[in-house]
Amino acid sequence: MITDAAFIAFAVLGIVTLGATLGAVAMRDPVHCGLALALAFCGVGGFYILLGAEFLGFIQLLVYVGAVAVLIMFVILLTRRPDSGQDTNSRGFWSALAGSGVALGVFAVLAVAISRSPSIQTATPADPEASIAAIGRMLVSSHLLPLKMIGVLLTVALIGGVLGAMQEGGKLER
C-alpha cells in the first residue's frame, strides 16, 4: 500500500506544486506571486523527498523557501510602487498570448519527446541509498574541487550582491 500512499502523495504534491506554480506565474499582484512561489518550492522539495533524496528536499526548503523566496519577497516589496500598475502595456495581451503559446509548444514538444523516448525505463528500481554521510564523503572526496568553487562563487555573489545593492552612482549609500 506504500505504492498507493506514494501515488496519493505524488498526486497531492503534483496538484499543489503545479497550482502554486500557475499562481506564481499568472497572478497579478507580485506579492501573491512570491507567496505562491514559496509554496511551489515547497512542492518541489516534497518531490525530492518522494524521490528518496531527503537531504536535497531539506536543502531545497532551506535555500529556496528560506532564502531565495524570502529574498524575492523583499525585493518585490522594495520595488513596489503604488502608482505603477503591472502589465499595463497595450500589447500585453498579444505578447502574453504569444509567450503562452510558445510555452505550451515547448511543453508539447517535451511531452511528446518524453512519451516517445525509448530509453526511459518503465520499471522502478529499488530505493537507492542517499544518506547524508555518503553525500558528505562524495563532496569532500571526488567533488572537492566543485565544492570549493561553489564556495568561491557564493562568496563572490555575496560581495557582489551587497555592493550592488549598496552602491548608487559609484558612492556608498549612507
Binding site: A98, G99, G101, V102, A103, G105, V106, A108, V109
Partner: peptide, 8 residues
Amino acid sequence: VYIGSGMV
C-alpha cells in the same frame, strides 16, 4: 518568444 518558437 522567437527563440522559443524557433526551437519548437
